[in-house]
């Protein structure tokens, strides 16, 4: 089986869909001839032709509006927003149009679009190339939000997203593009080579939306994470000495609430880890769901480990980034309660 990094896996997913479904097309800033600033669409224009993968004006609102119109026609557009930090000009299109079209037209029109966008920090990208906006999309009724943590899932989830008949925000943790990253930033860079999750079939397969993965089984606490934080969580669990179960949510809408509840009922403790700022973050929703559904099983308060409530600061990248040490401390705290 071929070994792929996340960029190659995503490229493979797009290649498969362009080959198998003549109604798919890709457009976005710099995605055509050049192949995207992160190379995710590399070679696709050459292989599939100009109309299947082409450059768009610097106009996120225009890109998403155009994609919705194409989707209403019957295509499955896969627009790219170059950085999730730049998605906000398209917010009205996503919230007022993509998410509402099926509902308000009683199913006459819908927008089967998959908006891919690199997100998250750990690359010294400063305020405008590092943010994690997943919670604001999760809050919008009618949008799905998917976040892979490894090459195998990235390909399978992307194909599932493209084939889905509802609009999907597909957030790609850019710190994981070239290798896993556990938050130990002082260590040498790792590649995906040798990682079992980098063994990616060349052909079509899907990883269903709304099915979490148990990355590590454990008995004493449950850690909920997604994207880059799955790897940070593994390191933090190791450092803590706590026998924690780690759940990779893979998509936050739809959310695999059954997997969360089953695990927390088993362990009695829950720590939530995400890179986005804590206040109003998706951890708040997870925490509420856990206490609503597992209250009598909980042995301690649900803990959240997250980015601080500041903009993403350039020089303070590793002070902001919720690394393994902060998770380990939270796990120890939850065991003391």
């Amino acid at each position: 089986m071929p070994t792929m990094n996340m960029i190659q896996a995503l490229n493979s997913a797009l290649d498969v869909m362009l080959t198998e479904d003549p109604n798919t097309l890709i457009f976005g800033e710099d995605v055509g001839y050049f192949g995207g600033v992160f190379r995710v669409t590399d070679g696709l224009q050459k292989k599939h032709g100009l109309t299947r993968c082409f450059d768009a004006p610097i106009s996120e609102g225009g890109i998403v509006a155009t994609a919705i119109g194409m989707g209403a026609f019957g295509l499955r557009p896969i627009p790219e927003i170059q950085f999730a930090d730049y998605i906000l000009p398209a917010f009205d299109q996503l919230v007022s149009e993509a998410a509402r079209l099926r509902y308000r037209s009683n199913g006459e029109f819908w927008a089967p679009i998959t908006v891919r966008s690199p997100y998250g920090g750990g690359i010294f990208g400063g305020q405008t190339h590092s943010q994690s906006p997943e919670a604001i999309f999760a809050h919008i009724t009618g949008l799905k939000t998917v976040i892979p943590s490894n090459p195998y899932d990235a390909k399978g989830l992307l194909i599932a997203s493209i084939e889905d008949d509802d609009p999907v925000i597909f957030l790609e943790p850019k710190r994981l593009y070239n290798g896993p990253f556990d938050g130990r930033h002082e260590q040498a860079l790792k590649t995906w080579a040798g990682d079992p999750m980098a063994e990616v079939p060349a052909g079509r397969y899907t990883v269903p939306l709304g099915k979490a993965a148990i990355v590590r089984e454990g008995t004493e606490a449950t850690v909920l994470a997604y994207g880059t934080m799955v790897h940070v969580a593994l390191a933090g669990i190791e450092d803590s000495g706590v026998d924690a179960e780690l759940i990779d949510l893979r998509s936050i809408v739809p959310l695999d609430v059954d997997a969360i509840v089953a695990s927390v009922k088993k362990t009695g403790r829950c720590v939530i880890l995400h890179e986005a700022s804590r206040f109003g973050g998706f951890g708040g929703e997870l925490s509420a769901l856990v206490q609503e559904r597992c209250f009598y099983h909980l042995k301690s308060a649900v803990q959240r480990v997250a980015g601080w409530d500041t903009p993403y600061p350039h020089a303070f990248e590793w002070d902001y980034f919720p690394g393994p040490a902060r998770l380990a401390a939270a796990l120890k705290r939850t065991m003391e309660d």
């Binding site: 225009g62 119109g69 194409m70 299109q93 149009e97």
Partner: peptide
Amino acid sequence: SLSGNVGSRFGHAVGWAMASAF
């Protein structure tokens, strides 16, 4: 499909037309 947000479907028409050409 109409919406109360004025203007937000103007670009959909362009996308729809591009799809027809595609």
